[in-house]
Design a protein around this nucleic acid. Sequence first.
DNA 1: ACCTGAACACCGTTCAAGT
DNA 2: ACCTGAACACCGTTCAAGT
Lengths: 224, 224
Amino acid sequence: MGAKVAVRADLSRDAIVDRSLAIADAEGIGAITIRRVAQEFGVTPMALYWHVKNKDELLDAMGDRFFEHLDPVPTDGDWADQLRAAVASLVVALRRHPGAAHLAAARVMHCAAGRDLAERTLGLLRAEGFTVAQAADIARNAMQTAVMLVTNEAGAEPHAAAELRQGLLETKRNALKALPIDRYPHLVEAADAMTDCEDVDGYYEFGVDMFVAGARATLAAAKA
Amino acid sequence: MGAKVAVRADLSRDAIVDRSLAIADAEGIGAITIRRVAQEFGVTPMALYWHVKNKDELLDAMGDRFFEHLDPVPTDGDWADQLRAAVASLVVALRRHPGAAHLAAARVMHCAAGRDLAERTLGLLRAEGFTVAQAADIARNAMQTAVMLVTNEAGAEPHAAAELRQGLLETKRNALKALPIDRYPHLVEAADAMTDCEDVDGYYEFGVDMFVAGARATLAAAKA
DNA sequence: ACCTGAACACCGTTCAAGT
DNA sequence: ACCTGAACACCGTTCAAGT
């Protein structure tokens, strides 16, 4: 049914990036291939080279997309609230394309929205008394933590196709459950929780909160 | 000089994995190729298939290596100290092969040392009152945080060759320094800190401490 | 038991050529 | 301006064959 060789849609840089993001979400980043993307447009592989310089540039462009739809981060609340809001907005953006989320980290500083967010976050932290090195570490870790939370949402292999992921997780869960319970009581107990989070929003809230709590506690310790 | 086609060393599974780890560290994981590794042994690509099932299995075997040299984690101190020790020992192990560190995450549960560490960590957290879901989240994040700290040590592109990395970082730093200072004062200020941490041990200590502080503060908040 | 030769179906990319 | 055909140097992998 669904035409494998798609109806020849209009080819453009944006369309190519969109399609690539969709492929990455459905089948993992490993499925992104110049030839494969071209095929989806019913076009010859070399046609893509008119719109993107090469595959690396395509991957970069995919990473850039996340920062074009970055929600404005509210500026109210104390510094910790704002740090939380910053990470949370990154998480929201990255969750749009979990299969390509890791591409974002390399592109933050190349995107105006990314730079603005980084600048504000650094300002927040510096004003609170963190050293330059600490502020830089926290800002970079904030980005990486957001990526990590999204790509790792259910312990799924991030490069696998969406259809296979369910099966892989089940295998993983069963392996944990089959562990000798006298030696691994807690792993057996946590088998479900490690391979499937039934409260997705809670998972993200917990992850973001823990990151912010870490920053806050670190600051408090430094001041003491 | 240094023979590109190496003196034909004894081919074995262990030797193949060792070589591959060395290549990954020097040139990034992208340089790992069945044909390339074979070439280093002065052997035909198909020779490798006698020792490893395929490339995926080779990558898995590389990930397994980290858990074969995992320092025993001390059991003294309170739960937070032990959590810190667990993450720190992961960091030490991963730093041995930064170019392949990200392969470890998928292999924890397949290695006895990894399972033991996870089991103990879960036990630690459960005894303290964390829910199963929270303990599972923290344990998984602990692993991912260790990987993140190592692969992200200096903001370097993790897939680039070691020789190019220096240059890439300099380019990045210069780009930050060249930013309009009225709009991005903190990014300009932090340009050096974002692209080069001169105190490496401090970087890791800070990262691990912040993670543990986050867990501790989260627990305190839950109990309040 | 361990390795090779030849072959296959894939990649990314270039370049001249078409419209 | 935008796309194609043909070609090149790479991949991973299989399989029959060698020693």
